[in-house]
């Protein structure tokens, strides 16, 4: 199931790359931070596709929390290792909240989550200057049902690669 989701997301990102001049499949917010970089091939361990799917680009949070779970720390360690060997990339960590909460508070909560990821990556040796954070609050859910099965996926921080060379 998770693999399928990733595959769908990957397809969407490829589509984004393909039609970067004509809007994007997430709703046409061309100024939002969805980078239109070439994702490359997942079999290539230096490719963004590999980072996103083989390593995993996102961690999840408990309700109203911004502290990292052991699973999240494991995944971020792998992200850090990848970022160490692929120095051409800067990252933007996007923090998100589920829809249970007021708008302003959720922007602040998403910022806390993104910052938790930033601080952890930084503690693992990734320079703070390579990491930006942004919060989308509850504005960009991935799953849209109104129960915990969706909320748990929406409470996330996503590490988005930005290739300085491209």
């Amino acid at each position: 199931m998770k693999k399928l989701k990733n595959a769908i997301l990957f397809t969407a990102l490829v589509m984004l790359t393909a039609c970067s001049n004509s809007g994007n499949p997430f709703g046409g917010n061309s100024n939002d931070t969805f980078f239109g970089n070439d994702m490359g091939d997942i079999s290539n361990p230096t490719s963004p596709a590999y980072f996103q799917q083989a390593i995993g680009d996102r961690v999840f949070f408990a309700i109203d929390q911004s502290n990292l779970s052991p699973e999240a720390m494991d995944l971020l360690s792998s992200q850090a290792t990848w970022l160490m060997t692929n120095g051409d990339y800067e990252i933007i960590v996007e923090g998100h909240a589920d829809e249970q909460g007021t708008r302003d508070y959720n922007v602040a909560l998403g910022a806390r989550r993104a910052n938790s990821v930033k601080e952890y990556l930084n503690s693992l040796g990734i320079a703070a200057s390579r990491i930006q954070t942004v919060s989308y609050g509850k504005e960009r859910p991935i799953e849209i049902c109104s129960n915990e099965s969706c909320y748990s996926v929406n409470r996330r921080a996503v590490t988005v690669l930005n290739n300085l060379g491209s």
Partner: peptide
């Protein structure tokens, strides 16, 4: 306008 995941 638009669904929750791609609201404009």
């Amino acid at each position: 306008t638009g669904g929750k995941a791609q609201r404009r």
